[in-house]
Structures are given as structure tokens and as C-alpha cells.
Design a binder for these strands. Structure first.
Length: 114
DNA sequence: GTGATGACGGTTT
DNA sequence: TAAACCGCCATCA
């Protein structure tokens, strides 16, 4: 395809790594995808994400755990519905910090705990 | 080539 | 706690 942006595939692949029932921030996805500081690119990539990949775009939100869409928006309502179907409870337009995906920190916390 | 925009982030009021 | 401000980078007029 003419609009083949290499970084986008990277971003999609990273978003696909988010476990079910967990959420990640745009900045975190950008960082894991090897694109620090390009959080906006993640949003762009999600907009270009083909449905064949089934990218869980709804598991990606802002760094403050709020949805990237204005409350009441059609997309925001859809995202809220998808998250709740996965067990992620939302308070207005925000999710619980407990539902954040923390790959490295989770293992670190496990080691510190024991 | 310049300026404006955006599914963002972090800091400051 | 919420809102405003600035910075960042790719895309578009």
C-alpha cells in the first residue's frame, strides 16, 4: 500500500500485547513501540488500524486514565462499552489505576513483595 | 515553505 | 481536583 508507515505496524503490534481487562496509555504504547515522545502518532496509527488486525484500540487511553474522546461522544460511549465488557469499570470518563497494564512494574512488585 | 491541527504528555496555576 | 499552558512530532491546507 502507498500509505505504508513502518511505525504504525509496530504500534499495532504493541497494542495487541495489552492483556484483556487491562489498559495502557498512548505514551506507554509509544515507548514500548520504540517511539518515545510520539504519543500522538499512536492515536494516528489507531485511526489507520485495519479491522483485520482486531487492534484493541479501546484499551488505549490518556496518561491520566481518561478516554481520549470527549464524554458523551459516540466513540467515547463505544469505548466505555467495550471496556466494561472486558471487566474494566469506568468512573465517568476515567478508569481505575488498578486496571492499568504495567508489564515491568508488575514483576518488580511481585519480587519486592516476596 | 509556513502555519494550523491532532484518538498526547507533563508541568504549572 | 480541574483547567490552562507549553512542548512534541507527523500530517494537511
Amino acid at each position: 500500500m502507498t500509505t505504508t508507515h513502518p511505525s504504525y505496524a509496530r504500534i499495532w503490534h504493541t497494542v495487541l500485547q495489552i492483556p484483556l481487562g487491562k489498559v495502557a496509555s498512548y505514551g506507554q504504547i509509544a515507548d514500548l513501540a520504540g517511539l518515545p515522545g510520539r504519543a500522538r502518532l499512536v492515536g494516528k496509527a489507531l485511526g489507520y488500524a485495519p479491522p483485520e488486525l482486531a487492534v484493541p484500540w479501546h484499551r488505549v487511553l490518556r496518561s491520566d486514565c481518561s478516554l481520549a474522546f470527549p464524554a458523551g461522544s459516540a466513540m467515547a460511549l463505544r469505548q466505555r462499552e467495550l471496556l466494561q465488557s472486558e471487566g474494566v469499570l469506568l468512573n465517568n470518563n476515567r478508569v481505575r489505576k488498578n486496571d492499568l497494564w504495567q508489564p515491568d512494574l508488575m514483576e518488580l512488585l511481585f519480587k519486592l513483595k516476596y
